[in-house]
Amino acid sequence: MKRGKYKASTKPQKGAAKNEYLPRAVEITKIRDLSSDVKHYTLKFKDGKPFEYKPGQFVQVSIFGVGEAPISITSTHERGDDLEIAIRRVGSLTNAIHTLKEGDELFIRGPYGNSFPWEAGKGKDILFIAGGIGLLPLRSVMNAVFHHRKDYGKIWILYGAKSPQECVYADELARWGKLDNVEVLQTVDSPTAEWKGGVGVVTTLFEKIEFDPEKTISYLCGPPIMIKFTNITLEEKKMQPDNIITTMEMHMKCGIGKCGHCLVGHKYCCTDGPVFTFAELKALGAEE
């Protein structure tokens, strides 16, 4: 019998291992409400040291004694933004974070994960499609693209939410909509009397736009059911799975490819993702 041998795919690291589990303290400098259950936080590192990140990366956010969870970065380092995250109240940690006030403390480690390949889309048209709080992680790449506006062609933003009250970043969507060659289309499931956008699921907005699948890159984020139907529509419109880019949400405990909770097929969402093309997800058998 041939002897079994374990061989890691990457070279052993030299020197002492850094303690990646040890987070840094941040101060919450600003809080604003994005919807009834989503708050936006601006953060400042207490140690004053720099924190560099790319659009699409995430951080592990914790309150000691409550727990830790992965949260998307919604700001754009490229523009010199302060670190910003947006958090929906959904579990014990996020509920605890929602009780914090400006000046309070959080702990952050990261940034982790790959990033949106936003520079590869230069010269192309960009189609952003977001459902609900799927707009939060996409905001980082949107701002990167708008920061380099002249490098891109036409930009569409299709945004669907349950109701007008659930729409996040309404002010920014309105501002982006006024830019040249940018079209922002919104839809909700349950409209109010004042609602001016569409009614129905986000795929209904495809009837209102025309794009060239050959020269368009699509960024997509939202709940699983929305991702599924949007992908079907994009494929019907002859968009190549390589050009449909999404970011996944999974349960994560470590963020560094160790704890095993975020496996998507054999890939770790935390280190191999969270950004995947639809072609990659298909190969992993995880396109839904």
């Binding site: 374990y6 061989k7 990457t10 052993p12 690291q13 002492a16 291992a17 990646e20 040890l22």
Partner: peptide, 23 residues
Amino acid sequence: LDGILYNDEFFAKREFADFYYVN
């Protein structure tokens, strides 16, 4: 022993070596 050698590869020799395991 081979279980430990597996854990060496998994925790100590991939990207983001695990501080507690390595020590």
